[in-house]
Design a protein around this nucleic acid. Sequence first.
DNA 1: CGGACAAGCTGA
DNA 2: CAGCTTGTCCGG
Length: 613
Amino acid sequence: MPVRPDQPLFEIEEPAAAPRSATKKPTDADQRPVGRVVRVLPDQPAIDKVFDYLVPDEMVKAISVGTIVRIPLHGRRTGGWVVEDDVVSLTKAKLQPIAKVTGVGPPPELFELAEWAAWRWAGRAASLLRTASPATAVRGLPRSPLRPAPTLTPVAADEVHDLAALALREAVATVRLAPSVDPYPLVAAAAALGPILLAAPVASTARRLGQRLRRAGLPIAILPEDWGLSRAGWASTFGSRSAAWAPISSPAAIIVIDEHDESLQQEQAPTWNARDVLIERARRLGVPCLLVSPTPSLEALRAGTLLTQSRNAERAGWPLVDIIDRRDEPPGSGLFSERVVDVLRSDARVVCVLNRKGRSRLSACGSCGEIATCEHCDAAVIQGEDSNLVCLRCGKTRPALCAKCGATKLKNLKAGVSRVREELEALVREPVAEITAERGTDAGGTGTRVVVGTEAALHQVHKAEVVVFLDFDQELLAPRSRAAEEAMALMVRAARVVGGREGGGRVLIQTRLPRHEVNQAALMADPTKVSDAEFSRREILGFPPFTAMALISGASAQAWIGAFDAPLGVAVMGPSDGRWIVRAPNHETLCNALGNATRPAGRLRIEVDPLRF
DNA sequence: CGGACAAGCTGA
DNA sequence: CAGCTTGTCCGG
């Protein structure tokens, strides 16, 4: 019978008050007649300093390391975490009492992990501990059910389950599973060892996996709502990026789903990555860490032993890929090859992907051929949906007419999604929906057979027979250091929308670069084509993971760089666009240097492991 | 973070 | 020099 942790199987008990560390040496500290003193870290990342407080008698039982309290500080009250108990305070200031116990906080080991992460991503421990803390006060923890958790019946003769058995013997295992392969047997195998911790880039992925395990009878905490259950320690914990900071104390194993996904990295500084936090967390606990992905990141390939499916099984988990070589077609021959037109006119459900918003990204005058540019800054202007011309650099808008000859007819040299939607409707003679990040599901993209959109379409459409990349070269040639990996991640998304090849899943790629490693990797269902190429490229360029980097930006970046005394082996490059790069042979050197630097006042962003540089 | 207090700027 | 802004410091 399934255990429903939210039903009255358990009662609420007082927060586990750690036994008052068996009467610490009653020596010199007791010269002073004060009572118990604890050290508290305020929850304001800007303070980054600990303060000592007296524990009033009525709070003695409720307070231990990790407890969330309110403290008087500088004439007002703030929240904070008890980070040390039974402190011998050396301060000359007279101690104030703790004002209030708010509730249960993260387990003690997360404080050490937060300190490490603060060093690793040049941030403050408080911002990480916020992520590790409950959204609202938790006053008691659910008690473990009396009946033992059922033993899971292993999935019979399942390849993924067998992979799990191997993976769970490693400290860190990188498990490559094709896009349409269900990771559940892996999760179930790990959960058979005891409560596990699982993080996935998309909350709904984590939730679905958790619910399946819950149906199998295991107690499951799904974050953020089940924070208390996770803190209680006996339930497997599932969540998105922030689950890297889940309060579960001793998971038997840690799993990161789709570890290659960029959304596992926090956008705001400190830019910690759930994958890297969890590798470290597993290492400290001495439990296996499973990094799962159809296209493992270079970081995962370096961190763990690679385990793969059989070649046949992996191929079956990728869709059939058609590379449509457009090199022979003249430029300007339109966005739709014959192959694509055929598919569009079939009765298949099709998602067309084009990462260009608006009507036109590049326009020229229909009569004189002049490229439409901004009157202010000379950058090329784009034509938005209202058909006005907008400069992306300075934001100026002007009506759609040629600046040279005044003609009002503009030629569309690079169509955007809005324009393509109109063209598609003319082509298929039925309504076509447009999906971009801004105009999402509300635009009702699911109703029509043919959909066109930016990559947001691949998030919002769950099932289609064909995905068409109308101009994949745009992804492949994007001026970004991680363009190939990002294109590969997009391919994985597409592969999931259409499913594996035995189910008829199909992806069409229009490209002029048929030999590009991403195209070849997709065609052959072999992601090593991308990682191999990327490894050698990065090694030649001295990019991560062969080095460690941080990107320094913001109004005070100049001042920071000026005061930065780069130690041996650490290089400062820049500025470009007001940003500097600090590069070191490894994180040890980089993070120590960043930690020793003095921080000027004002806005400063230190992005360790930048995704874009 | 946000209050306290000091140093700088303005106006008559 | 009051009255106000801006900057720096510091908290138990």
